[in-house]
Design a protein around this nucleic acid. Structure first.
Lengths: 196, 196
DNA sequence: TCTATGGTATGGCGAACGTAATCCAAATCG
DNA sequence: CGATTTGGATTACGTTCGCCATACCATAGA
């Protein structure tokens, strides 16, 4: 077994990606400096460029990683079919998720900032989100028509936007009510979809 | 009496607020420096602090202004009742709006960043968005039950999230399809609401 | 002309990204 | 098994750019 070899560097790289993902979600991409990101990983800023070409390189990698993890969680943890979707929706639009930026959905935390990123980053985002989307779509329409993907994207837009709005409001009661409304909206769309 | 006339300074301030609103929406809050913001207004950075206490002060003011203008546009331009809502929804989830950051909705452009702002800024956002929301709510349920406000917030969340998602995707055809799906979703919610 | 006012020009200070020069521990080889 | 090599990490630095402040100037009204 290699002791110092490839595993060491790969593990360090992984740690940077994971802690950076959390930091980006909490403080934003522009709001997170390289030296802070490295301190989060227990390193100093100079080591950064042995792992990534640039901050943008890390941003792209971290976003892809966040979406991958989220997709795995969806696939692994949620029940199949409509029951799984309802489970996902209720967990997503919960006060716990609203109040936990770091462990939460990267879409809700970063979506408008991602829209301003480089094409490379947005491409990685697009690829990553489609994997997540397919995990959701398979539960919305098991027969999987081509429109299922678009419907799942529509659902994700609703979820992310509602959560962002709940996070931005200072009135917590109103934010709570909005989350409930969001759950009702999401479920209503699913039911309307099945009726057609 | 005042030398330059009150109008002059007030007009300069207004110009800064308006150009800053556009810049924030295009480049983000963290992505916009004070000297850039002032250059946009045709001034140099030093003059900034004759008009605002700090960048945060401008951020708060600009967000409030953006929401005020948006609320006025909604009230002024959209027809009353359900027809007005449909008009708003179709305009909001249009490719034109998606491709025009600077003139677009401040919620879609800045929502997740606003969630990370100071309490003061978030309070100003909350106050401002509620005015906008009431303009929408009055068209959703003319009898105006207390839940109309929450329903309108739910709709705004759907609209903003869907538009953000459409902006982040690199696949334009998919983004177009998502916008259409968003329109259908929004209208379905309105109809479901009326049936109850 | 005198003075208040709005704006410019300039600068301090810190943080940002990125690049070395150096260090130290593990891996390899004679 | 000791010397050498390798490579990940540290420290330090350069440059740029961020926010914020102030000394000065130009203008317009009294």
């Amino acid at each position: 077994m290699v002791r110092y070899g490839k595993e060491h560097k790969a593990e360090t790289r992984r740690r940077i990606i994971e802690t950076a993902g959390r930091r980006f979600k909490r403080d934003g991409i522009d709001g997170s400096g390289v030296s802070t990101l490295m301190k989060d990983a227990g390193l100093t800023n100079g080591a950064f460029y042995a792992h990534f070409e640039s901050k943008d390189d890390l941003v792209t990698t971290a976003i892809a990683d966040q979406l991958k993890v989220q997709a795995e969680n969806v696939v692994a943890q949620a029940a199949p079919g409509r029951a799984g979707i309802e489970q996902i929706v209720r967990g997503y639009l919960s006060p716990q998720h609203r109040d936990n930026l770091g462990d939460g959905c990267p879409n809700a935390a970063l979506l408008d900032e991602i829209g301003r990123c480089t094409d490379t980053t947005r491409q990685a985002y697009t690829d990553g989100v489609l994997v997540l989307i397919d995990g959701i779509a398979s539960r919305m329409a098991p027969e999987a028509p081509s429109s299922a993907r678009v419907k799942a994207l529509g659902l994700l837009g609703l979820l992310a936007g509602t959560l962002q709005l709940a996070r931005a409001l200072t009135d917590r009661q109103l934010a709570d009510a909005l989350l409930e409304q969001g759950v009702n909206n999401a479920l209503a769309l699913l039911d309307a979809d099945q009726r057609v």
